[in-house]
Design a protein around this nucleic acid. Structure first.
Length: 305
DNA sequence: GTTGAGCGTT
C-alpha cells in the first residue's frame, strides 16, 4: 500500500489517501475525504495539461508509470455545488495559500553546508533561495535554515514529507505556522453598525479565505460579529484595525481562542463580571450598577458564541 | 572543541 497526495482544487489542504492491494484507489476512499470529488487528475509532465485518471467499477487506476509522486487534484462535479463550496472557490482566488514561501528546515546536522542542503532539496524542484543560519561570530551553523522553491507543487511535496539530510532526520515547516490548537480561526469584528448583515460580512471577508461561519449576536444587537475561517491561519494574516464594509468603519481583531465554559466563567469573575441571570446569557460588568442599570452590555473579543 | 528544541543580523 502506498499513499498518494490529493488536493481539492479549492482547498488549502493536502490529504494522503491509501491505495488498495491492486494498486488502485477506491472512489469511496476519495469521497470519504472529498465528498464532491468524482475523479482525479494530475499535471502531465510531458504536455503540462491536466491528465485524468481512468475510473472503473468504483476504482481509480494509477497512471501507466505508477502513482509516482504527483499531486492529484480532485475533479469536482459541476453544477451541483453547494453554497459552502462557492465560498471555497472564492478562497482559491485569495492570495494567502497558493504561494511559495520560505520554508524553515529544522534539525540539520551542524556540519551541513548550504550547497549540501540545496542539492538535497533540488530533487523536489527548482530551489530559488536556500540559507543556513549561522552564528555571526563563529560562523558555525545553528542547525536550521530556510529553503524557498520556485513551484508551489515542490513546496507541497516537501512539506508532506520527513527528510534525511546528512544522516539526520529534518523537519520542514512553514515558519511560525500555528497548530490547530493554538490558532484562531476567528476574527472579532467590532463597531459594527446594525445594518450590516452576515452576508455582507461573508462577501467582504471571503476575499481573504474560505469562511466556515459568520455570527452576529442579535437580541440584542451588540455591535460585533465573529468570522470563522476554515483555515486556522488565515485570521492571523488579515490586517488588524480598521476595515470598511458598506461604508461602515469596523474594527477587526483576531478573536481570542474560545474558552471552555468553566474557564470563561473564571475569566469573567476575575475581571469583575457577574452573571445577571444566574445561568442566562448576559454578562455585565459590576461597575454598571453604579450607573442607570440600563447601560450597554460590555462585549469583548473572546465572548462566547 | 560541546549541542539538538526552535523560528530568520542584513
Amino acid at each position: 500500500m502506498t499513499y498518494i497526495l490529493v488536493r481539492s482544487p479549492d482547498s488549502d489542504e493536502t490529504v494522503e489517501l491509501p491505495t488498495e492491494d491492486d494498486n488502485s484507489l477506491c472512489l469511496a476512499t476519495l469521497t470519504a475525504q472529498f465528498p464532491d470529488a468524482i475523479g482525479l487528475r494530475y499535471e502531465s509532465p510531458e504536455t503540462g495539461a491536466m491528465r485524468g485518471l481512468r475510473a472503473s467499477e468504483g476504482k481509480l487506476l494509477p497512471p501507466e508509470d505508477g502513482w509516482s509522486n504527483h499531486v492529484y487534484f480532485c475533479t469536482i462535479a459541476k453544477g451541483i455545488k453547494r453554497k459552502v463550496d462557492q465560498d471555497v472557490d472564492v478562497a482559491s482566488s485569495a492570495k494567502s495559500k497558493m504561494r511559495t514561501v520560505d520554508l524553515i528546515v529544522l534539525g540539520l546536522p551542524f556540519s551541513c553546508d548550504e550547497s549540501t542542503m540545496r542539492e538535497y532539496f533540488s530533487q523536489y524542484g527548482e530551489v530559488v533561495t536556500s540559507e543556513i543560519k549561522k552564528d555571526s561570530h563563529t560562523g558555525k551553523s545553528k542547525g536550521f535554515g530556510f529553503v524557498h522553491f520556485k513551484d508551489f507543487d515542490s513546496q507541497i511535496q516537501v512539506l508532506a514529507k520527513k527528510h534525511f539530510i546528512g544522516g539526520r532526520l529534518c523537519e520542514v515547516k512553514i515558519p511560525n505556522e500555528k497548530t490547530e490548537a493554538e490558532a484562531s480561526h476567528r476574527l472579532f469584528v467590532g463597531q459594527l453598525n446594525p445594518t450590516i448583515t452576515e452576508d455582507d460580512l461573508k462577501e467582504y471577508f471571503s476575499e481573504f479565505g474560505a469562511i466556515a461561519d459568520t455570527y452576529i449576536p442579535k437580541n440584542p444587537f451588540r455591535g460585533f460579529a465573529f468570522i470563522t475561517f476554515i483555515d486556522p491561519n488565515v485570521a492571523a494574516l488579515i490586517s488588524k484595525g480598521e476595515h470598511v464594509i458598506k461604508n461602515n468603519r469596523v474594527k477587526v481583531l483576531e478573536a481570542t481562542p474560545r474558552l471552555s465554559k468553566s474557564k470563561a466563567v473564571e475569566k469573567k469573575e476575575r475581571e469583575g463580571y457577574y452573571d445577571r441571570n444566574n445561568g442566562g446569557g448576559q454578562w455585565r460588568k459590576m461597575e454598571e450598577d453604579h450607573y442607570s442599570g440600563k447601560g450597554s452590555i460590555t462585549a469583548f473579543p473572546g465572548d462566547r458564541h
